[in-house]
Design a binder for these strands. Structure first.
Lengths: 237, 237
DNA sequence: AGTTTGTGTGTCCTACGGATACTGTATCCG
DNA sequence: CGGATACAGTATCCGTAGGACACACAAACT
């Protein structure tokens, strides 16, 4: 029910029962079923009833394995993101590793588009998620950053990545229904007579390039590199 | 019910009724009551019933003014963030203006800590929110960025700000209950025998400084400035 | 006047997360 | 070997949610 129990579940610290009937299924099955639902119908479609129905059992049987909906979400995330990558052999220095980390995370999200949304905020994290964070952390270790700045660099990078995903991977957005939301907004703004020069300037002309992924990332990496140079320590490669 | 109606509500395009009884209250009252609830008990405590109870009316009467819960959320956000600032007289060039924009946004969020969480994802936006975006957009206009990069810079900045808020403003987090979550995690990891060098390295020693706001922001601004210099256009001040 | 249009209420429905009590089953201990 | 024990899956019930619908009443226009 609490964070404690969920954490123990995530980290495999639950003692296996010795007596009683054999379990017909387990946490892994629950998580798998839930992830399938989330992948196809969105995370909003994941309910205890739906998951149980997919497994062929009743809703309440799930509570034998996942103490709560929050715990279910947690094991879903663990299953979805999977084992963290090993970046130690990636070439291109810390910049190359950071880029690779983003690529891999992105690919994972492409398979499970609900994950970036589900991983906001404070919550119990499992070994896979910690592993991913550590992979990023290792990338920024021993390049000349202070301890605090290292943590901040990881937060900066991963946060940016999550922000960009929802916007850029617009294909997974549910507004396939004829009207684009920015068009609607433009129409309404025109009707109210509101106009902003800087906005018009941006909107005018040819539509913007679809590849809007690299700018933010490269700016962040540039900023970190510049910081290293100013601190007088960093070896860029 | 749809985005269209919500947009018209937000932008004041609803025609005022000519006949019928006088309305005992209005959208403004609904939004105000809802914001009060969210401020004190969190956005999760905002339900139609609760808002109606605070106003002294029944739940269903609210639907006369806000087509849905999503629309209620939208007007709440508009009320909470308020009128956008005018940064044109802020000194320090675009960097100073960007910093100021972040400060002001941060202050707003301190008054309404649920806002950063509520403003993720695609949704109908009102004039205040557009105004805030435009203020940031104007800051990055005519400093040497391409149209696309200008938009990306705003997204980078505002996204980073929202990411940092939830982490840094931990005072508003609901884990006042004796145990700190990172302690719990450390304990569980110790019990499983898992250990990561780069993680240990960061955790070891004195606790990190509480001021973790500036690093990411300054790295982003540095990255943008470096980009301007490389493009050969930017006037830094 | 009466019609039209709008306001706030009461009732009902569906879906959700979850508590509790129960029946049945596998294992351990005497 | 047989009862006690611990566990598995089910059935029932509850509170809270968002929201549809139909009503009784009130103000304005004709």
């Amino acid at each position: 029910m609490g964070r404690q129990e969920t954490l123990e579940l995530l980290w495999g610290l639950r003692a296996a029962p010795k007596r009683g009937p054999k379990a017909a299924f387990g946490v892994a099955d629950v998580a798998a079923a839930a992830v399938e639902i989330a992948d196809s119908d969105g995370v909003g479609a994941v309910s205890m009833e739906q998951v149980a129905a997919r497994l062929g059992y009743t809703k309440m049987s799930l509570y034998r394995y996942v103490d709560s909906k929050a715990a279910l979400l947690a094991v879903m995330i663990e299953l979805a993101i999977g084992e963290p990558p090993d970046l130690s052999r990636v070439r291109g220095g810390w910049r190359g590793q950071a880029r690779r980390w983003c690529e891999l995370m992105w690919q994972t999200w492409d398979r499970h588009p609900w994950v970036p949304h589900a991983t906001v905020g404070e919550r119990p994290v499992g070994p896979n998620e910690v592993g991913w964070s550590v992979a990023a952390l290792t990338t920024f270790t021993d390049i000349g950053l202070s301890r605090g700045d290292t943590v901040d660099a990881v937060a900066l990078l991963s946060g940016h990545l999550r922000n960009t995903y929802a916007v850029t991977a617009a294909g997974s957005q549910p507004w396939t229904d004829q009207v684009r939301p920015d068009e609607e907004l433009r129409d309404v703004m025109a009707r109210t007579g509101v106009s902003y020069p800087s906005l018009d300037q941006v909107v005018a002309g040819r539509p913007l390039s679809a590849d809007r992924r690299s700018f933010g990332l490269e700016r962040i990496l540039d900023g970190i590199e510049l910081h290293l140079q100013r601190e007088g320590v960093g070896a860029s490669v």
